[in-house]
């Protein structure tokens, strides 16, 4: 459950942001979870929600919503854009990528030219996309 650690990071960061924006109560936190992270969206939302009950009062009643960020890659060598499905990865490889999305570079190749030199354009990480509340 390394998701637990990420959920804790989300809450610490949400609290920081809410204070910066001088909110007195946070109503909703929208999270964006990259596909590469292969974290179940609903499971993660309820994990965050669960940890929120223990968080500071400002955050306790916030709704948590998760949107998925589709993964996209661009080959540096031939400039082709491709998806995770295009570059076939095994279950075991997916697990390594699940913990550290940059490991995609270890296991994936450009499906067009075979180069390992590609960039992750989208679809990594867990982000706070939006945070709304009352001043």
């Amino acid at each position: 459950m390394h998701e637990w650690a990420l959920a804790e990071a989300v809450i610490a960061s949400a609290a920081e942001t809410a204070r910066q924006q001088k909110m007195s109560v946070v109503e909703e936190i929208v999270l964006n979870i990259g596909e590469l992270q292969s974290i179940d969206a609903e499971m993660f939302a309820s994990l965050v929600k669960n940890q929120l009950t223990q968080a500071e009062p400002l955050l306790q009643d916030a709704e948590v919503r998760v949107v998925r960020g589709e993964a996209a890659f661009e080959c540096q060598a031939c400039k082709k854009e491709f998806s995770e499905q295009d570059a076939k990865v095994s279950e075991e490889e997916r697990e390594a990528i699940h913990f550290v999305p940059e490991m995609a570079h270890v296991y994936m190749r450009c499906p067009a030219c075979g180069s390992p030199d590609f960039s992750i354009v989208r679809g990594r990480g867990v982000f706070i996309q939006e945070i709304t509340g009352q001043p």
Binding site: L6, A96, F99, E102, H105, I120
Partner: peptide, 24 residues
């Protein structure tokens, strides 16, 4: 995580991977 394979990371990916590891 790399199971003995080469890890071809550009600088910004090195930072991202380190951040991930430090966070979890």
């Amino acid at each position: 995580f790399s199971q003995g394979r080469a890890v071809p990371l550009r600088g910004s990916d090195v930072s991202q991977a380190a951040l991930e590891l430090l966070a979890v």
